[in-house]
């Protein structure tokens, strides 16, 4: 009987501890500044403004000769 109570109280303690750890972690997302997400957003915008991503020609010059001329059939 005593063992059962001990087990129950330890279970209760663990549950309480779990709630104390998990709940603030969830609230953190909403209250504190999401630094990693902000960095990601900044990088995306800066890449766009400065045209830093590969495959995008600088300026708005049209892409010409992107296709290899097809060899005439034999």
């Amino acid at each position: 009987m005593e063992k059962l109570i001990n087990f129950k109280s330890s279970l209760l303690g663990a549950a309480l501890l779990g709630t104390m750890v998990i709940l603030p972690a969830c609230v953190t997302i909403n209250i504190y500044f999401p630094a990693a997400a902000a960095e990601k957003a900044a990088d995306k915008i800066i890449d766009d403004v400065w045209q830093l991503k590969d495959g995008q020609p600088n300026g708005s010059e049209p892409t010409v000769n992107t296709k290899e001329p097809t060899a005439p059939a034999k």
Binding site: I22, A25, C26, T28, I29, P34, A37, K40, A41
Partner: peptide, 11 residues
């Protein structure tokens, strides 16, 4: 689940 919630938080 709480970790996933944080990772998914994009601006």
């Amino acid at each position: 689940a709480s970790q996933l919630g944080m990772a998914a938080a994009d601006l």
